[in-house]
Amino acid sequence: MQLIGFLSRRAFQAIFVLLGLSILIFVIARVLPGDPARTALGARAPQWVVDRLREDMHLNDPMHVQYFYWLTDAVQGDFGISLVTRRNVADDVKEFFPASLELVLFAGLITAVAGIGLGTLSARHKDKWIDNAVRIFSYAGVVTPSFVFAILFLLLFGLVLDWFPTIGRLSQDVPRPPTITGMMTIDALLAGQLATFWDALKHLILPALALAMGSMAQEARLTRATMSDNLTKDYIANKRALGVPERKVTGRFLLKVSLIPTVSIFGLDFAASLSNAFLVELIFVWPGISRYGVNAMLRKDLNAISAVILILGITFITVNIIVDLVVRGLDPRIRLRSARSD
C-alpha cells in the first residue's frame, strides 16, 4: 500500500517535470539562431521551397500553437521527420537509443560492482598497501575525463594488444540478432545466439569501461569513506562482541548500512554517464543517441533535438525513481518517515 502511494506520488511528479522539460526544450530549440527550414534544405534551395517547408512545419504560427502541435504528436510517439536524415525521428530514436542504453547500463553495472567492491576492499584493509593503491587509482579516475580513458583503452587494449574490437557494436561477419530490446547483448541471449552475444559483449566492454571509470572511482571513494566510518560504530562492535562471525558482520550488517549513500548518488552518476557518453560514442563509433543528439544540435534538427532530450529526461527520471526505490528498500528510516507523513 505504502509502495503504491510512493510510486503514484513519484509518477505524478514525473509528469510535471517532463511537461516543464518539454516546454524548455521546445523554447530553446526554437530560439536557436538560424532557420531550420533553410538549414534542412541547404543554402541553394529556392526561397519558395523554404517558405513552403516553414508552412508545413508550422514555423510561422505563434509559439504556443507550435508547442501544442508538437506536444500532441509527441505523446503519441510521433516526433515528426528529421530535417537531416529525412527519416522518422521516432525510428531514429528506436535505433540509437537502445545502443546508448546498453552502453550506459553496462557502465552502470561496472560502476556498481567494481566501485563497491574496490571501496569495500579499501575499507577492510585501511592504510595498507591495497588501500593506498585503490585510493591512487580512484583519485586518478575522478580527475580524468572519460574521453581520455576512451582513447587510452582504444589504443592500448584495442590497437596495441588487439584484445577487443574498437568500432561499432558487432563484427561484420556475425549474424545480427532479431531486434527485441534493441540491445545487442540481450537480444542475442534471448535468441540463444551465443557467438553473437560474445561478439557484442566484446564490442561493449571498452566503451562501457571508459564511461564507467569516473563514476566507479567516485563510488569506490564514497564506499570506502562510509564503510571505514561505519566500521568504528558501536552497532558493528556490538555484533562482533556478541559472537557474530566477521564474515556476517561485514558482509551483511556493515554492507547494507554502508550502501545507502553509495546507491543514492548512483542516480547522479547515471546522469553524468549519459552526458559523457557523447565523446565515448564518437571515439568507438558507437551508433548511440548521444552522438545522434549532438549531430542534431549542430544541424539545428529541431524535431530530433526535442526527441533526444525528452527521451534522456525520461530515462533520467526513471533511473532516479528506481534508485529511490532501492534506497527505500535499504533504509527503513525513510520508509517509516514517509509512512508517517502520508
Binding site: 560504530k233 558501536d234 552497532y235 558493528i236 562492535a237 556490538n238 555484533k239 562482541a241 550488517f253 547494507k256 548500512v257 545507502i260 535499504l330 533504509d331 527503513p332 528510516r333
Partner: peptide, 11 residues
C-alpha cells in the same frame, strides 16, 4: 553497551 541506540544497527 553503554548507549543502546548506538549499539543497534538502524537498518
Amino acid at each position: 553497551f553503554q548507549d543502546p541506540t548506538a549499539a543497534l544497527n538502524p537498518v
